[in-house]
């Protein structure tokens, strides 16, 4: 507990990242990344890789900055007026925060799914092909092809193939969330960002989403925020434990849950605090 106390006191802290994670080929590398809301610092010098083709889970108690870190990857935090950042991230070798980066083009290379399902008020079909629509794609056959592919990818095709023209809002919550995943993978993203995708869903829908994430493993690189330890242990390959804006320990999931190097990590994953 003394390390967490040190973090709370604002002392510098060295993250522990296991070698097996560093050995992997990263799709996103976060490099010495700090983030401020006005004067208040929310993230402290985070350095971590997100391995290609794997599922990386961010865990930690509420307010530890996992969502902020995730939203920084596709620069959603730009939308907040008072945010200032230091450090950088790299997506497949290209800087994310360099001044010359086109944010719109950058976001097109990533897919994002939010806590609450947020289908657009339009048909299921239009929801899925929205990323193509904004690129000006008009070819019906291409749109249809992508729509089917994405819905199959999101394990929703069989349920909605007969009612693609119905409103996306007519689906159930779990279906809506899978629709959002279909939308996120429609533009074939390099990394998929999931921000607690199951927190607003019932257990059955959660199970379906977890199965889906399991299926997407390998095909997509996934960075997922969750505060459900079981979920992290079930679906992720790597787990990063964050606390008060700092990365504490990151390792293969089995390592984190069975023999973490830091006792604080063990306390957290076994539910002794947080």
């Amino acid at each position: 507990m003394n390390r967490l106390k040190a973090i709370a006191d604002g002392q510098t802290f060295e993250s522990v990242i296991h070698q097996e994670v560093l050995d992997r080929d990263p799709v996103v590398s976060i490099r010495d990344f700090s983030l401020f809301y006005n004067r208040k610092q929310a993230l402290y010098n985070i350095t971590m890789p997100v391995a290609k083709g794997m599922v990386t889970a961010l865990v930690g108690p509420s307010g530890c900055g996992k969502s902020t870190l995730l939203r920084s990857v596709n620069r959603m935090n730009d939308l907040i007026e008072s945010v200032r950042i230091e450090g950088d991230m790299v997506l497949n070798g290209e800087s994310i925060f360099a001044p010359s980066v086109d944010v719109i083009a950058l976001r097109k290379r990533m897919g994002m799914v939010f806590q609450k399902p947020n289908p657009f008020p339009m048909s299921i079909f239009e929801n899925v092909v929205y990323p193509l629509r904004i690129d000006g794609e008009r070819d019906k056959t291409i749109l249809m092809q992508v729509c089917e592919q994405s819905l199959r990818g999101a394990a929703l095709w069989e349920e909605v193939k007969d009612r693609l023209s119905e409103s996306g809002l007519s689906l159930s919550g779990g279906q809506q969330q899978r629709l959002c995943i279909a939308r996120a993978i429609a533009s074939d993203p390099e990394v998929l960002l999931l921000d607690e995708p199951c927190s607003a869903l019932d257990p059955i829908a959660t199970g379906k989403i977890e199965d889906l994430i399991d299926r997407l493993r390998g095909e997509y690189s996934i960075l997922i925020v969750t505060h459900n330890m079981q979920q992290a242990s079930r679906i992720s390959d790597h787990t990063a434990f964050m606390y008060l804006g700092r990365l504490v320990e990151m390792a293969e999931t089995s390592t984190i849950f069975t023999r973490p190097r830091l006792s604080e990590t063990e306390d957290y994953v076994t539910g002794r605090f947080g």
């Binding site: 959603m76 719109i104 990533m110 947020n118 657009f120 929205y130 990323p131 904004i134 996120a184 533009s187």
Partner: peptide, 23 residues
């Protein structure tokens, strides 16, 4: 959340406004 969803898909400001917000 709708605006964020649209931005996350890589839509620009005006695209978001006229495809999502205004409807």
């Amino acid at each position: 959340s709708l605006r964020e969803g649209s931005y996350a898909c890589g839509a620009g400001k005006w695209q978001t406004i006229h495809r999502i917000v205004l409807p």
